[in-house]
Each structure stands twice: as C-alpha cells, then as structure tokens.
C-alpha cells in the first residue's frame, strides 16, 4: 500500500541536502504541488535531478530561482536563464548529461544493472574519464547508474496501492524515476479505488511507490 499524505507531509519527508529526482519535461508531467510545498517548507541544498530546469516562474524552475539547489543534474537548462546565470557565476554545481543517457542511467539504478553501454557521446567531452568499449566496430561509453534519495513524480490517476496511469506526454521521466530512489512520492490528479485502473493501463506499478499526494 502507498500512504496517502498531504503536500506538507511530503515536504517534511525530504531533508535539506537530499538528492531528489523530479519527473517532468519542461513542467509537462512535473510535480508542481510537492515542489511548491518544498519551497514553502524552506528546503535547501538539494541535489536536483531533473531533465531540465523548466521555464521561468513555473514548477521546478522555482527551486532554482529561490536558490534551493546546490547541484543540478540535468540534460538541458537553456530555457531557464536563471540556471545559466547561476552556473556561469559558479553559484551552483552542475552536470549535464545527454537525455537518452540520463534516463538509461536512472533505469540502470532501478533495474539492478551496473551500468549501460551507449554510443551517445563517444568522441565528445561527455566521454571524458569514461571507459570506452568496442564491439563489432562500434564504440560505446560505460555509463554508471544514477539514483537518488527521493523521487518526486506526477501521474494522472493512482489507486491506494500506488498503481499509476499517466496521460499523453506526461509519462516521460516519471516512469524510470519511480524505480530509482529510496523513497518515491507520487502526486496525482486523482486517487481512485483499487480495481478502478485496469491492470493493462498501469504504467508505474505500485510496488515502486511509497507515498501519494493529491495534486
């Protein structure tokens, strides 16, 4: 069973300095409710793991804008100028990862793998310091798993067991992140009774989900 909690209780679970994965792509499928609660609760020094730092003034961008982030691990931060400013000013640590590698590293952490071999980034600065393996004439980088203390994700609908379905393009990173953190908090637009989500429509099985928050 997943425990249904308030957004304030969710924020209270996450201490200062925690590493936190946030689902969503430019806020589409992003956990805006819990993000708000984290800001209201004064959380700081977070390691922020998210595809992007959003668009100014919305969702996860506020964590950056309110200086709650010590380190950002992302694939693209170009649509939020404040992130670029903090990076260029040396106010924030950062690691930029190719998007496909980012999500595969998260999957590896959640799926018990020691890493993944990807052709992406070979011959670029992304390859610096990484092992290169070649098979059948093609080179691959060894990329290690990426996990976090917490994953904060967002779905369309959940049942009390934590089974989640998503709508349209909101699935994005939520599915992989739900598997790769010690504690998984899912905010959802609607909580329905067990059995109300067809098993074939469950995209994140409840086994991965610890807490539910109403969005």
């Amino acid at each position: 069973m997943a425990k249904i909690i308030s957004k304030q209780q969710a924020a209270a679970l996450i201490p200062d300095g925690a590493s936190v994965m946030f689902g969503g792509f430019m806020n589409c499928g992003g956990p805006k409710t819990v993000v708000e609660a984290l800001i209201e609760a004064g959380r700081k020094d977070l390691t922020f793991i998210c595809n992007d730092s959003g668009l100014p003034g919305i969702g996860v961008a506020k964590l950056i804008e309110n200086k709650r982030v010590k380190k950002i691990i992302a694939t693209h931060v170009g649509l939020n100028q404040e992130t670029g400013r903090q990076i260029n000013a040396g106010e924030i640590e950062y690691e930029l990862i190719p998007q496909g590698t980012f999500v595969e590293r998260i999957r590896a952490a959640g799926a018990g793998l020691g890493g993944v071999l990807t052709p992406t980034g070979v011959g670029t600065i992304v390859a610096d310091g990484k092992e290169v393996h070649s098979f059948e004439g093609r080179s691959y980088l060894l990329e290690r798993p990426l996990k976090a203390d917490f994953a904060v994700i967002r779905g369309r609908r959940a049942d009390p067991l934590g089974n989640i379905s998503y709508r349209r393009a909101t699935r994005n990173f939520n599915v992989a992140m739900a598997t790769a953190a010690e504690v998984v908090i899912a905010e959802v637009e609607e909580i329905v009774e067990a059995g109300q989500i067809d098993p074939d429509q469950v995209m994140t099985p409840g086994i991965f989900v610890d807490y539910l928050v109403r969005a």
Partner: peptide, 24 residues
C-alpha cells in the same frame, strides 16, 4: 563532425536529446 550544443564560457544550455539523435 558537428557542434551544436555549447559555446564555452558563453552558452551552456546542455545537449538535451541532440547527442542521442545524431548518433541514433
């Protein structure tokens, strides 16, 4: 070879999906 994701010291937006797209 192509370069389309950063200008050191000036523009560091991140590569997003570009590196995967051009390889794949």
């Amino acid at each position: 070879n192509l370069a389309n994701w950063m200008i050191p010291g000036k523009m560091v937006p991140g590569m997003g999906g570009a590196m995967d797209l051009v390889v794949g």
